[in-house]
C-alpha cells in the first residue's frame, strides 16, 4: 500500500532523511519510531506532498505522492501532532466543512458528521467553538476529520501526545478498529509502550536513517537483544560521542 523507494530529503548539505526504502502492506498498523528531530515529520510531510523529495519517491496505493497529489489526498487521512482549528467555528461545523471539501454532498457530510461525533463521544461538545476544546477533544476531532471521507490510509503524527489516559485508550481502540476494517495505519510516535502494544511492525529512524524495521521479534533477532522495545530503541538510537567510540575501537 505504501512504498518508499529511496525517498530522501536534503536541505543544502544537511541530510534530513537519508534514502529510505520501506514497504507497508494493506491493513498493517506500522509504527514509525524515532527520537525528536530524527526526520519523522519530514517523512510524513513528504508523504502528504507538502515537501518535495530531493530524490526517490513514495507511493500510496500506486500513486506518487508528489506528482498525483490530489488523487493521493482522496485516499489518505492525516492527523497532525498539534491540530489547530479555526476560531469561531463549532466542532460539528468544522467536521462538516472537512467532509464537504472532500467532495461529499451536504446531506451525506452531515450524516457522517453526526455519526462520527457520536462515536467519538464529542456529541455534547459539538456546539462549542473548537478552539475551546481540551487537547484530547481536539485530537479526537482531528481524527474524526481524518476519517470522515473513509480513507484507505491513515497517517498519524504523534496521536497520543498530550492525551490523558482515558482519551488515549479511546484513540487506541479506535485505531485498532480501523486497522481491523482494513485501513493501513502509519503512526509516527515516540511513545514506545503504545507502539509495542498496537503496532504489528515498527521502523526505527535515527538521524534520518532507518536503523531497524520489522516486527518486534525480528528486531530482537536482528539486534541480538532480548529486552523490551524501549531497551532496543535506546541502544539503537544511542548517540555515541567520538572519543568514547575511538576508545572502544582501541580497546
Amino acid at each position: 500500500m505504501i512504498k518508499f523507494q529511496g525517498l530522501s530529503k536534503q536541505y543544502g548539505s544537511f541530510d534530513a532523511v537519508h534514502p529510505l526504502d520501506l514497504q507497508i502492506s494493506s491493513g498493517e498498523l506500522f509504527g514509525f519510531l524515532g527520537p525528536n528531530g530524527a526526520g519523522k515529520t519530514t517523512t510524513i510531510r513528504m508523504m502528504m506532498g507538502l515537501l518535495v523529495p530531493s530524490s526517490g519517491s513514495v507511493q500510496i496505493d500506486g500513486l506518487d505522492c508528489h506528482a498525483d497529489n490530489t488523487e493521493v489526498k482522496r485516499r489518505i487521512g492525516y492527523l497532525p501532532d498539534n491540530p489547530i482549528f479555526y476560531d469561531y467555528l463549532r466542532g460539528h461545523e468544522i467536521l462538516q466543512f472537512v467532509g464537504e471539501m472532500h467532495g461529499l454532498p451536504r446531506a451525506e457530510a452531515k450524516q457522517r458528521t453526526q455519526r462520527l461525533l457520536k462515536e467519538f463521544s464529542l456529541d455534547d461538545a459539538s456546539e462549542e467553538f473548537a478552539v475551546n476544546y481540551s487537547m484530547g477533544m481536539k485530537k479526537k476531532l482531528a481524527l474524526a476529520c481524518a476519517l470522515i471521507h473513509e480513507p484507505r490510509v491513515l497517517i498519524l503524527d504523534e496521536p497520543i501526545n498530550g492525551l490523558d489516559p482515558r482519551a488515549a485508550r479511546e484513540v487506541n481502540e479506535r485505531l485498532l478498529q480501523c486497522a481491523a476494517q482494513g485501513m493501513t495505519i502509519f503512526v509516527s510516535t515516540h511513545l514506545l509502550d503504545m507502539a509495542e502494544r498496537l503496532c504489528s511492525r515498527v521502523g526505527i529512524i535515527h538521524h534520518g536513517k532507518l536503523v531497524a524495521t520489522g516486527t518486534l521479534d525480528q528486531i530482537r533477532a536482528a539486534t541480538a537483544t532480548n529486552g523490551s522495545l524501549e531497551e532496543i530503541f535506546l541502544s539503537l538510537t544511542n548517540d555515541v560521542s567520538p572519543t568514547s567510540e575511538s576508545i572502544s575501537r582501541v580497546a
Binding site: G49, R74, G77, C145, A146
Partner: peptide, 14 residues
C-alpha cells in the same frame, strides 16, 4: 489561514 493550513492541505483541492 495561518496555522490552520494543515487542514487545507488534507483536502484533494489545490
Amino acid at each position: 489561514e495561518g496555522e490552520r493550513l494543515w487542514l487545507l492541505y488534507t483536502f484533494p483541492r489545490s
